[in-house]
Amino acid sequence: MTNPTPSPETQNEAMQIAKATQKSNQTKEQTKRVAQGIEKGIALYKKQQKVKARERDKDRKKQLRHKEHHTSQGDLDVTESSTPESTSGRNSLPWVLLVLSWVGFAAYLLMVQ
């Protein structure tokens, strides 16, 4: 795998960092080598960040697909459970409880008197 030449911005940034950390008795050639090492480090860092970004994107897409899959299954479950038989059973429950509570209340009043 060939190493592409770093961008001019990366080269400038590496040279600035190398000059900022330059020792007093360091030659220009040594500073240039330090800058090249920094360029390689920057290139490696960018490469690692691209790999991490790709992995995050894959995970995000996988979670999105998983969520859509569960949402679509949830929609199917809701449509299957909303048949007329099941909705009528759920609608009659409050009425049955209301009638039972009134019967119980009437029975209580009759027992108290």
Results as ranks from 00 to 15, higher is better:
94 P>N: 08
34 V>D: 11
75 D>P: 00
5 T>Y: 02
81 S>V: 05
5 T>G: 07
99 V>A: 14
112 V>T: 02
86 S>L: 05
25 N>C: 00
75 D>M: 09
9 E>M: 15
42 I>A: 00
112 V>A: 11
111 M>N: 14
5 T>A: 10
62 K>N: 07
77 D>G: 00
81 S>K: 06
99 V>R: 13
27 T>Y: 08
68 E>L: 14
82 S>C: 11
70 H>M: 07
98 L>C: 15
2 T>F: 13
94 P>G: 01
40 K>F: 11
22 Q>W: 12
23 K>F: 03
110 L>V: 12
110 L>T: 08
5 T>P: 14
39 E>Y: 03
47 K>L: 09
67 K>S: 12
111 M>P: 00
83 T>Q: 06
16 Q>D: 04
84 P>Q: 01
34 V>Q: 06
87 T>L: 13
113 Q>W: 12
79 T>E: 04
1 M>D: 12
2 T>D: 14
57 D>I: 07
82 S>V: 00
52 K>F: 10
66 H>G: 01
93 L>T: 02
109 L>Q: 13
88 S>C: 10
20 A>L: 08
107 A>H: 10
77 D>F: 02
43 A>N: 01
52 K>G: 00
21 T>H: 08
1 M>V: 07
65 R>A: 08
11 Q>T: 14
68 E>K: 13
100 L>D: 02
17 I>Y: 05
34 V>R: 09
26 Q>P: 07
58 K>E: 05
58 K>Y: 11
20 A>S: 12
73 Q>W: 03
70 H>A: 07
17 I>P: 02
73 Q>D: 06
47 K>Q: 14
39 E>L: 06
20 A>F: 10
37 G>R: 13
24 S>R: 05
18 A>I: 01
51 V>L: 10
8 P>F: 02
48 Q>L: 12
98 L>E: 14
32 K>A: 08
5 T>C: 00
113 Q>Y: 12
1 M>L: 04
28 K>Y: 05
29 E>N: 10
59 D>H: 13
111 M>Y: 13
29 E>S: 07
103 V>M: 08
59 D>I: 13
26 Q>T: 12
34 V>A: 09
71 T>W: 07
102 W>E: 03
109 L>F: 15
100 L>C: 06
68 E>V: 05
42 I>T: 02
91 N>H: 12
23 K>W: 00
35 A>I: 15
52 K>D: 07
93 L>V: 09
81 S>G: 15
82 S>A: 05
19 K>G: 14
109 L>T: 10
107 A>D: 08
34 V>C: 03
33 R>T: 07
59 D>P: 02
18 A>R: 03
30 Q>V: 03
85 E>P: 00
7 S>I: 01
63 Q>E: 12
78 V>C: 01
102 W>Y: 12
96 V>E: 00
88 S>E: 05
47 K>C: 05
33 R>C: 01
13 E>C: 04
4 P>S: 01
41 G>T: 11
43 A>W: 02
36 Q>I: 07
108 Y>R: 11
69 H>M: 09
29 E>D: 14
73 Q>A: 06
89 G>E: 11
8 P>Y: 05
24 S>I: 07
61 K>N: 01
59 D>W: 13
65 R>P: 00
67 K>Q: 10
30 Q>R: 02
95 W>K: 11
21 T>N: 09
64 L>D: 08
100 L>W: 07
70 H>K: 02
63 Q>K: 15
51 V>D: 15
88 S>T: 09
82 S>G: 11
